[in-house]
Nucleic acid binder design. Structure first.
Lengths: 193, 193, 193, 193
DNA sequence: AATGAATGAGGATTCATTCAT
DNA sequence: GATGAATGAATCCTCATTCAT
């Protein structure tokens, strides 16, 4: 019956909410919120839940990310940044798989997105970045004899995709076990003859 | 306040199919419709779309299948029947994977169901039937030296699950290619050392 | 998945279900089922629940009672028979109230019906029978000095109606208490000055 | 499969009323609409009818009142405010009954609610407010000799409840007559010995 | 005369998206 | 720039009623 309107979710630090500085902060908060929400509830959460978790209004969410695609891409974009940074020097295919496993919820959201919006140029571009990274790692692994010469880039991409999908539909409690099993299967697939 | 709820205009087109004979036909039609719809649109289609495709009313769908779980299970149940029949004599793990590929859409709907309703006894029971079949094939393959002794039943189950998930989110036009690639990966995983 | 169709609710004796003898039996079973169902679940139960409870098909229910009105009237008709029989000789207004209390669920269903279908001639006729009984009792009570001369037939009817309504919306566990309180209020209203 | 659910055609008629100012107005409009609708059609009207009457969308109704309980309570809450204000000084039990009669439709909706959601704390709390008012009036009436010492608070509550129920199921045209009759019955019940 | 399957309108509810403030 | 209220289409599900068998 109260007529007063609390502005933000109480369990989140109150942020300055105007001006360009705040705008950047909101963007970051939204991406962080999306990570959390996707990890907790999977990719089917109401879009509005992300705004609430970020402590901003719905309008703000839409201002920064015109649709779900834009948001998921922004989230995954950061992941690819991190992957590139971490793996460019000395990384391996199996280390990449391990990362995918660690980031299961985000990976999944992105993989789902890719299958649903294969033709969205924003998605293509991000997928391409990932492809280039995979390509680099594969060549290096093969040169070092860590994986067989039969392995092609597309095989690794497929492994990543299957892994992400599988983890997406695995109960949190079983994820570690499933991840280990799946990892081993692909290790066998990739091993040198 | 009204206790009675009049629902429909009495002078409508006459309904053509009643009685227990039609009921069995409707049941079959609904399962067939579910197959088609799942193949075309994935497992998230409105429940009512299945009724429409089957050419029956919503109520008929609910009469036969009180919820989505019941329907998917009925559909997949038939698949397991067929799998058992086809593979009991002389079947192999890879032949089973090939079947899963052929039945991708149904397999997927079922695999999804399993992850969302892990504790539903109806789902458990059907999963168990599949497990037993996998177990049989694995033992036979190992005895014949077709797959390595490192392969466990759970590995095959995982392969099936990943395959189904992957195909579920693959555009129809790419499915054959993806299926072949994935199949090869698992063949390598399972090959004898 | 079973295709066999059990014909009747298992917790009810199987009745011969064809022919004129069965027809009368079904009619009685339906009325009895309605009593039970109304007592347990109030007047809002699905009509079909009554058929199920009676162990007959939906069609049979509709054959005997074209609508809810017809059924409720049939049920209450029996009650009025009993009331007349019990009270014609030596009955009193307060004894009538006591009966209404005992038959709370049926009384309620009827009272509700009356307010919703005031103009249905079948309902009018039954209401009239009740009115005549009330009238008889009131006159006798007044002649004996058991109730005041200010009491009119309509006052008693109103008391019955209010009592029935109230009990209809009282949790089963509180009904006895409420009934006793209400009874006392009307006793005071009716007492001779 | 689709993760996003596009809902509405983007080129539609522009919506006129947004923002917190309109929100308060809408809330008031919804409560007013509920009053009207309940008066006209009783408490069983589709929830959506209230939204339509208020001239707002369904979502707006649900935003303000997550369920029927919340709405009815909001409506009746205002009534209790008014009752307290009007009767705190110099009010009597019979004046309270008169008010209940005037507000029959709302009283009914609330009384029904109480019986169906006896354990909802929101309902309890409001019921308690009413109880306290009844208690105050009863004591005062007894001190002034306007009602008998046999009258207890629960008797008055019961009278209110029965009155409300009765009026709920009385055709509008008969309500005044019925109300007067019922009022008199309770006056007699309460009068000093 | 009985059966129970079929029907579909309609109520409850959710959420993607827009936009006045 | 931010806010969050408003919107209504769409989905789920229930049941009164009909009617083929």
């Amino acid at each position: 019956m109260s007529t007063s309107r609390p502005r933000s979710d109480p369990d989140r630090a109150p942020a300055p909410n105007r001006g360009p500085a705040a705008a950047a902060g909101n963007r970051r908060a939204l991406i962080a919120a999306a990570r959390e929400i996707y990890a907790e509830h999977g990719p089917m959460v109401p879009f509005s839940a992300i705004a609430k978790r970020a402590g901003v209004g719905q309008g703000t969410l839409y201002r920064h990310f015109p649709d779900r695609v834009a948001l998921v891409l922004a989230v995954f974009d950061e992941n690819v940044d991190a992957l590139e940074e971490a793996l460019r020097e000395g990384g391996t295919i199996m280390a990449l798989l391990d990362r995918v496993i660690d980031q299961a919820s985000v990976s999944t959201a992105f993989i789902r997105l890719l299958s649903e919006h294969q033709h969205d140029p924003r998605a293509r571009e991000l997928a391409l970045r990932l492809d280039r990274l995979v390509d680099l790692l594969r060549e290096r692994d093969q040169a070092a004899g860590r994986i067989g010469s039969h392995v092609q880039t597309i095989d690794v991409q497929l492994a990543i995709s299957m892994l992400a999908h599988e983890l997406a539909s695995t109960a949190a409690s079983d994820r570690a076990t499933v991840a280990a099993r799946a990892r081993r299967l692909f290790e066998l697939s990739f091993r040198p003859a």
